[in-house]
């Protein structure tokens, strides 16, 4: 039997994103050159929310885009071909910008690696940073996040599922216990 519990509820996610938005503004000194790029599906939703908050706080409109990493995955051959997500970069591109990649969960780091590869096909950002809602550990590559909503120690057998209002009807981070092996 597997049990699941919410480790973050709607208000927690709200507060975490508000803090990350402030941190981005602080670290990039006003976010003038920042472009927020989400990894489909939920990373894009999170990137939009961060963009809205930064606009609320400082009145600057941040370009928001999405980058699909499917074609750059290193595990493509371990299953049937996957459907593609949407890549939609802001019209001004990423050259010379500070790109903040946004995703829901940071786990092995392989998604981020693929996103960095995909990004390099569109230009040469001045810097790339990483914003993550949940860091669950178990990295397999030398990658770390610049902005973290919550550090969540997990076992590898557990599953972390992020639900967001826009795609799943409600805001929550669910931790599901895996089957004991």
């Amino acid at each position: 039997m597997s049990e699941s519990r919410a480790v973050l509820e709607g208000p927690d996610i709200h507060r975490a994103l508000t803090r990350i938005a402030h941190e981005i503004l602080e670290r990039t000194k006003g976010a003038d050159e920042v472009v927020l790029i989400g990894v489909p599906t939920r990373g894009v939703t999170l990137a939009r929310r961060l963009g809205e908050r930064i606009e609320q706080f400082e009145g600057v409109k941040i370009p928001v885009g999405s980058i699909d990493i499917t074609m750059h995955r290193d595990d493509l051959r371990q299953g049937p071909a996957r459907p593609l997500g949407r890549t939609d970069l802001p019209p001004d591109g990423v050259d010379g910008k500070i790109v903040v990649l946004v995703d829901d969960v940071l786990y092995s780091g392989r998604t981020v690696r693929a996103a960095l590869d995909a990004l390099s096909e569109f230009g040469r950002p001045a810097a790339v940073q990483l914003a993550i809602l949940v860091d669950r550990g178990h990295r397999e590559l030398p990658i770390r996040a610049d902005y973290v909503g919550k550090n969540l120690p997990t076992a590898k057998s557990e599953k972390v599922k992020v639900s967001l209002r826009e795609t799943d009807g409600r805001d929550a981070v669910i931790l599901r216990k895996g089957d004991a092996r």
């Binding site: 074609m71 459907p83 096909e121 569109f122």
Partner: peptide
């Protein structure tokens, strides 16, 4: 529909400066 939807996303590749994917 999967083929057509995949093509819809790939159509954007030919609009890029680097038209190559490593897949």
């Amino acid at each position: 529909l999967l083929i057509l939807d995949t093509a819809e996303e790939l159509a954007r590749v030919s609009e890029r400066s680097i038209k190559k994917l490593p897949t």
